[in-house]
Write a protein that binds this DNA or RNA. Structure first.
Ligand SMILES: [Mn+2]
Ligand SMILES: [Mn+2]
Ligand SMILES: [Zn+2]
Ligand SMILES: [Zn+2]
Lengths: 145, 145
DNA sequence: GGATAGATAGAAGTGATTTCTATCTATCAT
DNA sequence: ATGATAGATAGAAATCACTTCTATCTATCC
């Protein structure tokens, strides 16, 4: 993801293009890994000088709102964020490496037939689902994590 | 779920059978809905007299550990718990009514073929997934929520 | 180069969840 | 039944992720 397309996405959402927003997006796109707000802040501080924690939280939340980032769930319920490379507007999920936090986009693995089956059995109308796939990336597998 | 089988599950896990644990399990099995720890506490207090908040959190966490309860995720990230009626040890997910919080068990809707597809495309070894299906139950649909 | 709406830093606040510790009780062995 | 003991509980206090507040800045548009 180039700085230009990040800037374009920000403008499209009515958000100003600021050094902090660009730096946060760049960090997550270049690393490809999920990070907590605290970790993002620590990594950006050397380059940015100052970066408030509330600003870090707000920026990550806004970038997730645009679809540039995604929230990643962890067992300890600490929130983290990762870059999302999915085509805009296309339904998808995320595959997270439990070893290193690397995040990839995957297509939806919840077939319509399953959905209809659930509706028939339960009497519910199914309106959505949240899903996150977990695994070990090639690197982590080789390293034996 | 009878008090006897709850007690048996507790004993099997090396947990003592206490009035508070039985009451929490009973409340959630009888209501069929997801509740926050705070809500569980408020509802149990009239019958139990005193019930500490740390005790409430710990009991819900322990009961979820045995599989009697499941954690339910919400968009606001507030944690809640619901009874789980799945056969022990069988992989499954939960369907949550966004209107009233009613929770049902559903079979896994993530086919092995999809998993292999993901592994081939990404080079990851897929080790698990977290999923929660959302919808509107028959009652809530009729009520027009 | 202003004007202005939006962005940011830092301090303070919030609220869910956990820790701590003294007291209690379910369980098991007399 | 009674006593011993490991585990459970209440209440107070602490923790900590996250948010709010407000004065100061700055990206953007003229
Ligand atoms: Mn995404
Ligand atoms: Mn379950
Ligand atoms: Zn990895
Ligand atoms: Zn409902």
């Amino acid at each position: 993801m180039s700085p230009e397309s990040v800037a374009e996405t920000l403008r499209n959402q009515g958000l100003k293009v600021t050094p902090r927003r660009l730096a946060a997006a760049r960090l997550l796109f270049e690393s490809g890994r999920a990070m907590t707000p605290e970790e993002v802040r620590e990594r950006l501080r050397p380059a940015l000088g100052r970066l408030g924690l509330p600003t870090t939280y707000r920026i990550l939340d806004e970038l997730a709102g645009t679809g540039l980032l995604t929230r990643v769930e962890r067992d300890d319920r600490v929130l983290s964020y990762a870059a999302c490379r999915a085509e805009p507007g296309r339904h998808h999920h995320h595959l997270v490496c439990t070893g290193c936090g690397r995040v990839e986009v995957v297509g939806c693995a919840f077939p319509a037939s399953q959905r209809r089956d659930i509706e028939r059995r339960t009497g519910f109308r199914v309106t959505g689902h949240r899903m996150q796939v977990e695994g070990l990336c090639g690197d982590c597998r080789r390293r034996g994590r």
